Simulated scan of single mutants.
Amino acid sequence: MFRNFKTVKRIVFGRGCFNQLDDILAAQRTAECPDMVFVVDDVFKKGKPLQERLPLHDEDLLLWVNVDDEPKTKYVDQLTAEVRKAMTERRRHLPAGVIGIGGGSTMDLAKAISLMLTNPGSSADYQGWDLIQVPAVYHAAVPTLSGTGAEVSRTTVLTGPEKKLGINSDHTVFDQMVLDPELIADAPREQRFYTGMDCYIHCVESLTGTYLNAFSQAYGEKSLALCQEVFLQADTPDSDDKLMMASYFGGMSIAYSQVGVAHAMSYGLAFVLGVHHGIGNSIVFDYLDEFYPQGVAEFRRMLERQGIDLPRGVTAASSDAQIDTMVNVALMLHPLWENALGKDWQQIMTREKLRDLYRRM
């Protein structure tokens, strides 16, 4: 059976298109349900021009979210409860929509809130594949960092009490994307690099995986080429445009394939040590010559070209119990390992081998 996957319904791209957001959202507001919930990275809270450009109406709810740590199910539940309380006070059932403005973590929070407003229980109950039963409220993405592909993916990556695992569902997919390259222009250099490497690495994993097909290859090759232009060549006026499209194409590539070893292992690092996703992928990828020799060699050239010092010794102080937990979390992600290593992946990536890889980091 071929997967009949869902994509984002509407996309607007171009420098300055953020100014159209108010008009786009107007079509979703009604007299009975006019409220929009803006989920915005709190980095824009202090003296940032974006704060003044938010198209807030009197009835809208603004949630400044902190993503110093990667999104946790507990935080999603807290934010969802805050929105529900506000709706109850206004004698409304649901908001008209949820708008995520920020990087991958902020967009993941917006996805998760939109899902949990219509589904009972804790977000931890839905970590897995196709567990969501009721469609989310309308939700839109406005990326201010590019690379994760969160704006196009069917996953909202969350750390729960027992595991780091996404809510993977067709209902997770955004209804609208607003892709304005001007919004990513002021991203800190290292953050821009590591987020971009998330895209580069998942393209390498997709293009070398056993799930590869013409659909994922077409998107993945273009995304990879754009990453190579951005991170190996001289900066140009349209570098941000290219990086934003690399993120979109990279996300589309894995929609019909999968990621691989680096992503699986980075989940373990994040769950135990709180290492952010882009940095975690980069740390892991640097030790995966055996699986991705050409990609790792090119990645190291990107590190040198961009003047990035990769963190070292991140697991040096980790206990045996912590390493075992990393291994357990990583090994939960069966589709990633099968894509990377084939159906007999468990004979190739043994617990002992995985434990040794983590120890080397």
Rank of each mutant, 00 (worst) to 15 (best):
A225R: 02
A124L: 05
C17M: 01
M245T: 03
D170V: 10
G342L: 08
S257E: 01
F249Q: 02
G280E: 03
Q51Y: 07
D22M: 04
Q258V: 03
L117S: 05
K163T: 15
A255G: 13
A140D: 00
P55M: 09
L341K: 10
T106E: 00
D356R: 14
T195G: 07
S169H: 13
K9C: 08
T156P: 01
T172A: 02
R3I: 09
D68V: 12
D286N: 12
Y219H: 10
V98H: 11
N281A: 07
E70Q: 09
R192H: 13
Q347G: 14
K111C: 05
V275E: 01
D286M: 05
Q346V: 08
G100K: 05
R359G: 06
I201W: 10
T73P: 00
P49Q: 10
P120Q: 03
G268C: 02
L336I: 08
Q78W: 06
G250C: 11
S253D: 00
K353A: 12
A246H: 00
M244K: 03
A136P: 07
D108N: 02
T210D: 08
D77E: 03
V275R: 00
D289R: 13
K163I: 15
Q306E: 15
H93I: 14
D309S: 14
K353E: 12
E229V: 05
T159I: 13
L303R: 01
A81G: 13
G121V: 13
M302L: 09
P34H: 02
R3T: 10
L131E: 02
P135T: 12
V40M: 01
F215T: 14
S253P: 04
R91H: 15
D241E: 15
D235A: 13
D77S: 02
V272C: 00
E290Q: 11
G313Y: 08
Q191R: 12
V296K: 01
P143S: 06
Y194G: 12
G342V: 08
T236E: 12
T325R: 14
H277M: 11
Y75W: 06
E82A: 14
V230K: 12
M349T: 10
